[in-house]
Amino acid sequence: MLHIVVCVKQVPDSREIRIDPKTNTLIRQGVPAIVNYFDLNGLEEALSLKDRFGARVTVVSMGPPSADKALKQCVSMGADEGVLVSDRAFAGADTLATSYVIALTVQKVEEVWGPVDMVFCGKQTLDGDTGQVGPGVACRLDLEQLTYVEKIEQLDEKRREIVVHRHLEDGIERVKAKLPVLMTAVAELNKPRRASLPGVLRAAEYKPIVWTTNDFANLDRAQIGLKGSPTIVGKTWVPEQKKIDTQMIGLDKGIESAATDLIGQLFSTELPAKLGWA
C-alpha cells in the first residue's frame, strides 16, 4: 500500500490581517488560523489516491500546540494520522530550519509506519509565501522534486512511476519521475473535499501525535529554530501609500472630448515611449 505524507502548515488567514495605522504593526489578534490553502490541495490529492489505490496518509505539521486543530481538520477529511512537531526550540525557524525538521519528521514517520512513497507540500504558504520548504525537504531526503503539480496523469504502482503535469507561467510540462517523489500542489490540482459527518466525529475525538525535540534521536540543535535559521529579518515597514493627486476628467464637454483629453494627457507622460505607442 502506498504511504503518503502530507505537510501542512497552520497559517493566519492573511487576508484578515490588518496593519495598526498608529504603530505600523500587524494586528494578528482575532485573525482566524486556517490550514494553508495549497496544503489542502496536497491533502486532497493524497486522499484521492487513497480512494483509488489504497494508501496510508500521514499528515505532519510543525507549529505551536494550537496547530493540532489543523491536523484534526485533515483527519476529518480522511487522513489516517496527524503528527504535530511542536517544541519551543523549533520556533523562529526560516525555510532552511523548517525543512530540516520536516525532513527529520518524515524520516521518523518512515521508521514508525514504514517507507514513504510520496510527500506532498503546498506550492507555498500564505504567511511565509516562499515555496522553499518543499524543495528543501526534497533535497534533504534526496527525493525527486516535482513542484507546482496541477495534475497527476498517471501512477504506475508496479513500476513506481508517476507522470504529472507541472503548472508553469507559460504552459504545462508533462514530467515522468520515479517514486519516491515530493510534489508541491497548486490550486488547480483539485478541489479539497468537505469532511463527511463520520470524519468530523472521528476528528472531534482524535488527538494528534505530538513529537518534541526529545523524540528525535539524532537532532542537531544548531540547525533548528532561530539558531538554525541563517536569514535574519532586518527592518520591516509598511509600504507607503503613494500620494496621488487624482486628476478628474469632467464629462461636461461630452464623453468624446473627455476621452480625447485623457488620451492626450497619457501621451504627455513617458507611457508612449515605454509602451511603444507610435
Binding site: 500564505l126 532586518g234 515597514w237
Partner: peptide
C-alpha cells in the same frame, strides 16, 4: 509579507 501589507528586509 502578509499580502503586501508589510515589507521586510532580509539578511544572511
Amino acid at each position: 509579507a502578509f499580502s503586501e501589507k508589510l515589507l521586510a528586509t532580509i539578511l544572511c
